[in-house]
Design a protein around this nucleic acid. Structure first.
Lengths: 345, 345
DNA sequence: CTGTTAGCGCTTTCAA
DNA sequence: TTGAAAGCGCTAACAG
């Protein structure tokens, strides 16, 4: 059990393979094999090794394993923020699958900054993850080239593009917004307004904005565009109320408001309830995300449901399959979205 | 630039320190130093090295660095779930601080299972993180002994205990629930009920339950206990509505309901609004967590505000200070809680 | 200010 | 079925 003298001191004493091997009376090699491929080791040897592992409390050093094998069993995930609960769901979906597959998750957030994203990708790649998952499909060219050069599987998520880096699990935010506009047009609303917070760098929200404009151009040709867009307000319901009042003041004629998130739509809806503004009679409201509260409000909030958790889970599955060299049915998976029509429209 | 012949093939070609050194015409050691302590290298040398790093697109292999230096610059964080947005906030707070300090975050979730927590701690320790952050103060003895043996800083969070493993950043869930009961008693409510979902393994919720019972014993001596506790329902508003109806049916006399989470309280409150049950006149409602919607509802939800993000940030700071061998003012930080009284009581 | 040497703990390769 | 040797890419220690 004595560790050989060394110039290098480790702060906390940790058991090594060699020590387990010594205790079990076999070579380090055999212990390594026993742990990874128990079938290839004789029964009695395995038993001795298992006992030695138990007795010493050995925990394999995966860093050393990674260095030697060039596989890390980790996935790096880079998200804009955890404050958006739909993104947290995606992380949860990814983590769920990775855990069962024996992978560990490195998580970092960018606050929607492409510069931070670049730095984060760079430092994450320093860990030599086996794969990377990104939210979004728009990145700095340097970021993309870094990822390509890494030569590992990459999944982009939460939007759609024809120019993906590698794999893709998402849906068209643009089409989602167009579907909302089409729905409102179908219900006879004529004067739509768009209300959003779009951080510079939130390209998904940008796409939804673009989709709104396209929808309006399609259904209300030549009509004026009504919109209030904040660039830097928090993702909170009270901001939704602010957006609502801004729209009402600037476009009193508006008969429907398309919000970029359920958080804002929910805030606006609660504001209406508090102020006895009848929804949808006086004004219709739509959201995005189908948050938990959307279906509980009275009136219920018409919104777009997105399979957030599934995006994470499917991304993880694609990464794992690729890493296992299993064939993929597709490298670009459109998980779609659902327009959920409730009473607010 | 030619890499020496090797028996070992790496799947994806990556630049190494030695190659940068060759290109810059210095030793590997000097490159290593230049990257970590630029001041200790001559200006012209530094310039050549910087150019070589740039030209080769070198990304340091932190795994190798970790193995050699015995420091990983990673923190492992183990949470029950990301589905609770207050916990997501804590993760965000941790990640925020760690990023600026140059640490990376390993994240894993346990779904409130102590067994999964043990397995997760075990596999996380395999990465040899520099520190560990856990949610909660109750863990399996094996988990605790594993963490102690690792000899690295550990922070427990989100609750309070006198028997911490190492450091602690939290507050008393029990006192929080007692404060809610005291508030209700002070407002003249006489027949309190407790409504919760408590997963086996959610010891914080358990503490809030205990606090409720203590509060009732204190303020309503000898009175009967009213409670409905589900053991395995999702954290969603519709479950809050179910809890509400269960309470009403079993305890029609109840004049106030203490929910274990704003999610349920919010669901119940919205249900009341939909069913025209007057809150707080017919029944008072309290929550826990001070979610975004709590203040937006009408009536506003009386609840307990918890500095969730701060818990993460302070935990990260404690870990980093400890790792930097800086003195700590305290190893057990009580971040407290605030009773936020709104119109629902 | 810079270089040499040894070694971190593991896996790969090859041989027995 | 098991073991010996080499090396993954980096940093610590020491010397110059």
């Amino acid at each position: 059990m004595d560790r050989p003298a060394s110039r290098r001191k480790s702060l906390s004493y940790t058991v090594t393979l060699a020590e387990v091997a010594a205790q079990a009376g076999v070579s380090a090699q055999t212990v390594s094999r026993a742990l990874r491929f128990p079938d290839t080791v004789a029964g009695h040897t395995l038993a001795r090794i298992t006992a030695a592992v138990e007795a010493t409390g050995y925990v394999p050093n995966l860093s050393a394993s990674q260095l030697a094998s060039n596989r890390s069993k980790t996935i790096a995930m880079i998200i804009p923020t955890l404050a958006a609960s739909v993104i947290a769901e995606t992380v949860q979906g990814m983590s769920d699958v990775l855990l069962t597959e024996g992978y560990q998750l490195f998580l970092g957030h960018t606050d929607y900054s492409p510069e931070k994203e670049y730095e984060l990708v760079r430092s994450m790649l320093g860990r030599r993850p086996d794969g990377v998952c990104l939210i979004g499909t728009v990145h700095r060219p340097e970021t993309i080239s870094l990822l390509r050069k890494a030569g590992i599987p990459v999944v982009q998520t939460w939007d759609w593009t024809e120019e993906r880096i590698d794999m893709l699990v998402g849906f068209s935010n643009r089409d989602a917004a167009r579907a909302v506009v089409a729905h409102l047009a179908g219900r006879g609303y004529k004067k739509l307004a768009f209300a959003a917070v779009i951080f510079p760098g939130d390209y998904r929200a940008e796409q939804r904005h673009a989709g709104f404009l396209e929808g309006v151009a399609e259904h209300f040709k030549g009509k004026k565009v009504r919109e209030v867009i904040y660039r830097d307000r928090p993702l909170s319901m009270s901001v939704g109320a602010e957006l609502f009042h801004d729209i009402r003041q600037r476009y009193p004629e508006a008969d429907a408001i398309v919000f970029s998130s359920d958080v804002f739509a929910g805030g606006a809806l609660l504001e209406c309830i508090g102020a006895s503004i009848r929804v949808p009679d006086e004004i219709a409201i739509t959201g995005f995300g189908d948050y938990d509260f959307a279906g509980q409000l009275h009136p219920g909030l018409t919104t777009v449901h997105v399979p957030a958790r599934d995006i994470g889970a499917q991304s993880a599955r694609l990464l794992v399959r690729r890493l296992n060299k299993q064939p993929l049915e597709t490298e670009a998976l459109d998980v779609g979205f659902d327009l959920v029509v409730r009473e607010s429209t």
